[in-house]
């Protein structure tokens, strides 16, 4: 087991720089999820850690070892791929044993490790089948088994669940988490799915256009998003954003002229309000004209516009509500749940 340190990593293809100085410390045994939209560079970052991409600048340490110039096989890592990358002509057992065989580990030891991993993953009965005879979920387990038997310092996952159907994904998500805790191994997991990221990670590294937007625990990201991007990316349904103006008297003027308290600076700001943080109150200053309702059972999503404007807003109220379109509802928000961002830089105020 080991920690993983990224020091100011850069990646360029020709003249195009895709990663612009990524740094971060990942503790021994920690589960870190790298999350971001497609094209943000998250897979590239993972592949640089794995040694599958050349590092343009910066350093990667596994434990105390600088691994920049080591071959993937010598970095003491294991990787689970999105399409599993099982060798189609080898049985499950051979797939799992292949890396060990190359390393010259004794047959007895290989068998012990393969069977132990098969027991953990409950795939013992499939050991002699070929990958094509397995279902998606089973293949996923084999891919993990192949990683486990290597007993690596660091586990790398590259969107391992995106080829599974929704139900199986939830189930495998839990299993990956349990497995990681049981083995106590350091893990780096790449996904574009923020729910997956929130449920799996001890900490999340949010990546956008090659920059780290924020690196913190799921709760930190939810409660104190460092930027507009993180605020909009984390949470479902997504946060409402409104333009506002900070007044000298410490009040905030909304787009429809209504004023609420709590300005942190003067001038234009972007306000963020999570739909679930809007509290219905007939006297509430934030007034929304209802257009569509989504009944989810446990709660109701109210879609509408800020009264007097075209600004789309969503509020989530617990329980079941019946409202006619066109009706105007008032809402309150607690000051500590009102996020304010610099309109120009997108940074949290």
């Amino acid at each position: 087991m080991a920690s993983l340190t990224l020091k100011d990593l850069y990646k360029s293809y020709g003249n195009t720089e895709v990663l612009h100085g990524i740094s971060g410390e990942i503790q021994d045994g920690e589960f870190v999820v790298i999350v971001g939209p497609s094209g943000c560079g998250k897979s590239t970052l993972l592949r640089m850690i794995a040694g599958l991409e050349i590092i343009s600048a910066g350093e990667v340490y596994i434990g105390d070892r600088k691994v920049n110039d080591l071959e993937p096989a010598d970095r003491d890592i294991a990787m689970v791929f999105q399409n599993y990358a099982l060798y189609p002509h080898m049985s499950v057992r051979q797939n799992m044993a292949y890396g060990l065989k190359i390393r010259g580990i004794s047959k007895k030891e290989i068998n012990r490790r393969v069977e132990e991993a098969a027991d953990i993953l409950e795939i013992r009965e499939y050991l002699d089948r070929k990958p094509r005879q397995l279902s998606g979920g089973q293949r996923q387990r084999v891919a993990m088994g192949r990683a486990i038997v290597r007993e690596p310092e660091v586990f790398l996952f590259d969107e391992p669940l995106s080829n599974l159907d929704a139900k199986l994904r939830v189930q495998m998500r839990l299993e990956i988490r349990k497995l990681q805790q049981r083995l106590g191994v350091t893990a780096v997991y790449v996904t574009h799915d923020q729910v997956e990221a929130m449920t799996l990670g001890d900490r999340l590294m949010v990546l956008n256009a090659g920059y780290v937007e924020q690196f913190g625990t799921p709760l930190e990201l939810y409660e104190r998003p460092a930027s507009l991007f993180v605020a909009g990316f984390i949470g479902s349904p997504a946060m409402n954003f409104l333009e506002a103006k900070g007044q000298p008297d410490g009040m905030l003027q909304l787009e429809n002229g209504v004023v609420i308290s709590g300005a942190k600076s003067e001038g234009p700001v972007t306000l963020g309000m999570r739909p679930e943080h809007l509290i219905e109150d007939t006297e509430g200053p934030i007034r929304i004209e209802v257009s569509v309702l989504e009944q989810l059972g446990a709660n109701t999503l109210i879609h509408g516009t800020l009264e007097g404007t075209e600004r789309e807003m969503v509020a989530s109220l617990p329980g079941i509500h019946q409202l006619e379109p066109g009706r105007v509802l008032g809402f309150l928000i607690r000051p500590d749940e009102l996020h304010q961002f610099d309109s120009k830089t997108g940074k949290r105020l």
Binding site: L52, E71, P72, A73, D74, M79, A85, Y87, I102, R146
Partner: peptide, 8 residues
């Protein structure tokens, strides 16, 4: 990639 990680 998988083969390279396996050391082939």
């Amino acid at each position: 990639e998988s083969a390279r990680i396996d050391g082939a």
